[in-house]
Design a protein around this nucleic acid. Structure first.
Lengths: 334, 334
DNA sequence: TTGAAAGCGCTAACAC
DNA sequence: GTGTTAGCGCTTTCAA
């Protein structure tokens, strides 16, 4: 392995000067610089990042914690973080938390041990006080998809309640009266806030959402399939199904299709998130946009500016992103 | 930041002994070990991985190069690598290559500079001689989804030709005579090998694939939509469309659906890869399985065993994975 | 503008 | 079993 000494020897200078060229840290006579650059090229030298990290006490790596990389929503988030990090010349170290508090915690800790000063964490199950403690000990710690009052300036989150409201309004404004709602089973998910928004919309339309109309399912394709089966078994004649996310909605769609129901004529279906599949299923899903791309970008920028002490432009209230409706073909007027 | 010295001081021992406990590297009296473990816990100490990497000349991090993280196929691959790495107590450093030879090269180089001795690379556009050179200088360098003769023992690849053959047979065995084929535009993709397999199947059925029946498209949803439009404009009455991948097939499906064609009655459609969406679209796609999960796992294990000199169980011929057909509902008999 | 030297936190010989 | 010491490759004072 080539080291800075090899370069120095070949260029006939000291290692310190090579370092100066590498970092543009002090003025170096241009002839000297040239010699060094030649030597670097000749040896195909690349500085050892571990050594740099050790002496600089940080590493040009942003740590990312997510629950599950294979889910489209998170994959998109990770992709957006990676793209943003790349612009700042940072790499991305990914660790999964798998919906387990201990694993989530050790995922974060391991990234910190790797000297990641920048950290973008999508915590699903870790208690707030743990998150606050991490934030206090790590200047570059940022939460995404989560709001924690005490460290809100490090949070990039989404207005789930408004999302729920918009979700319900997609059906309510088209005259639907008998509406089923499919939410996620886990408390950890954003179900309860979305449901609150759904209720608010019902109230504003003078309608009532009964507990019986709320179905619980795992937040994926299979969950949607199962939920729809239960929905059809009920004695109510629903005309619309509000879904926790687009994967659930796809499952609902698939099940309806296999039962020869026509969407949106026999049943309207509304998704949430607007991931790729919403645009790819048939009929295309009317859904609620969760702007995860720009949120991920913001979280990355935020983390990076927090560690560069470039705090002038920080928003003390954090960053809340709003949903909006994306109307496609899965909703009919009744 | 806590260091090994702090722990040593608190436990009343030397740093070396702390290191021994940390690494289980030599026998330590159990009472001493206990004291040290107490001190580690009390200080919430975690060893600095950069320092370890520097002295050990490697890092417990596996570098991954892929073209685009947001594509479902690659997201699934990345997820599988991460899961496997985690089992070996490795982290994952991800870098994207974006179908550009220079970016791909610098992505690999940057991972090497980070001391990643284990490397799983999905190269799309880098010339073989570059890959061979990387392999020669990096014992843990492994290629996935690619076969390079000179370093085949470091390759985990897929039998695209057989895949193409199976793809065509899904239609041929059901009596289709007029078949359109949609392949990827880029040479970099596996199109040509798949096409070769398609041709072989046609030959074995005594049928002829004319150049006019081959359509080129970008390997995604939009590409599928556009391709189908061109297919329907042709003067031939096709009864089946063979697609480069499931995303293309979804686009074909969507376009057919919007034109009120019924699948598979009016047209049969066959995908490739068997990503999630193949199971989620309507009708469910008949497709060819690309076992990316197990391949990614194998590539990760291979890379890790290459650097641990645990080469006894290595296969000098590399690892070729075979496709198989997954029959669902998008193909009819004619 | 450049070089010498110290040291980041850790591991691994080599003593004892 | 445990401590002492050197040094991994780099950056950064401090002098010159």
């Amino acid at each position: 392995m080539k080291t800075i000494k090899d370069v120095a020897k070949l260029a006939g200078v000291s290692p310190a000067t090579v370092s100066r060229v590498l970092n543009n840290s002090a003025s170096v006579r241009s002839s000297t610089r040239h010699k060094i650059e030649q030597a670097i090229k000749a040896l195909d030298f690349r500085p050892n990042e571990s050594a740099r990290a050790l002496v600089r006490q940080n590493v040009k790596t942003i740590g990312v914690v997510i629950s599950e990389l294979s889910e489209p929503f998170f994959a998109q988030m990770a992709a957006s973080i990676e793209a943003t990090a790349k612009k700042h010349n940072y790499r991305v170290l990914i660790s999964t938390g798998s919906l387990d508090a201990n694993k989530e915690k050790s995922a974060i800790e391991s990234l910190i041990a790797q000297q990641c000063t920048a950290l973008v964490v999508n915590s699903k199950v870790l208690p707030d006080h743990d998150l606050i403690q991490f934030a206090n000990n790590n200047p570059g710690f940022v939460l995404i998809n989560k709001y924690v009052e005490q460290i809100k300036h490090r949070c990039v989150w989404f207005d789930n309640e408004l999302g729920g409201e918009l979700l319900a309004k997609q059906a309510l404004t088209k005259g639907h009266k008998s509406i089923a709602v499919v939410m996620a089973r886990q408390k950890a998910h954003d179900s309860s806030r979305r449901l609150k928004g759904v209720r608010r919309a019902f109230d504003s339309f003078g309608q009532r959402l009964s507990l019986k109309d709320i179905y619980h399912a795992s937040p994926d394709f299979k969950g949607g399939q199962h939920a729809l089966t239960r929905i059809l078994k009920s004695d109510k004649q629903y005309t619309a199904v509000l879904c926790y996310n687009d994967m659930v909605a796809s499952g609902v769609l698939a099940q309806l299709s296999s039962l020869k129901y026509s969407v949106p004529n026999d049943m309207s279906v509304i998704g949430f998130d607007d991931v790729l599949i919403a645009n790819y299923c048939s009929p295309k899903l009317t859904t609620i946009k969760y702007p995860i791309d720009v949120m991920a970008q913001k979280a990355t920028d935020l983390s990076l500016s927090l560690i560069s002490a470039n705090e002038s432009q920080l928003n003390a209230n954090g960053y809340c992103y709003k949903p909006y409706a994306v109307q496609r073909q899965s909703v009919a007027r009744v």
